[in-house]
Amino acid sequence: MVDDSTLDKMLYLSRLQVSRDERSAIAGNMSEIIDYFAILSKYDTSGVTGGPGEAVPAGELREDAVREGLAQRDLKGLSPHFLDGYFSVPRVLDEG
C-alpha cells in the first residue's frame, strides 16, 4: 500500500489536490498500479532495449535542412495570449 508521504509527494508532482475522503481511494488505485508492475517485473526483460519499437539506424534520421515554420498570423490564431510577438503567461519568478 502506498504510504502517506509517498502519496503526498505524488500529488505534489502531479499538481493535484484531493480531499481527505479521496485519499485512501487514490492510494488504493496507485497501489494496484504498482502491483501490476510487480507482476511485469517477474518476466525476464534483459534482452529488451527499453525503447518503443524497433531501433532506427542513425543513417536514416532527418536530414539537417530548414523548413519554414508557423507565421506570426498563425500564432495569433493559436492563442488569445499572443501579444506583440510574445506569448504572455501569468508572471513567473523562478527561472525553472
Binding site: 506569448f87 503567461v89 519568478l93
Partner: peptide, 19 residues
C-alpha cells in the same frame, strides 16, 4: 533547450515567452 522567458518590470502580472 527550452524557450526564453522575459520578465518586464512594468508588467507586474505577466511574463512573456519566446519559443
Amino acid at each position: 533547450d527550452a524557450g526564453k522567458s522575459l520578465h518586464l518590470e512594468e508588467a507586474a502580472n505577466a511574463s512573456y515567452v519566446d519559443f
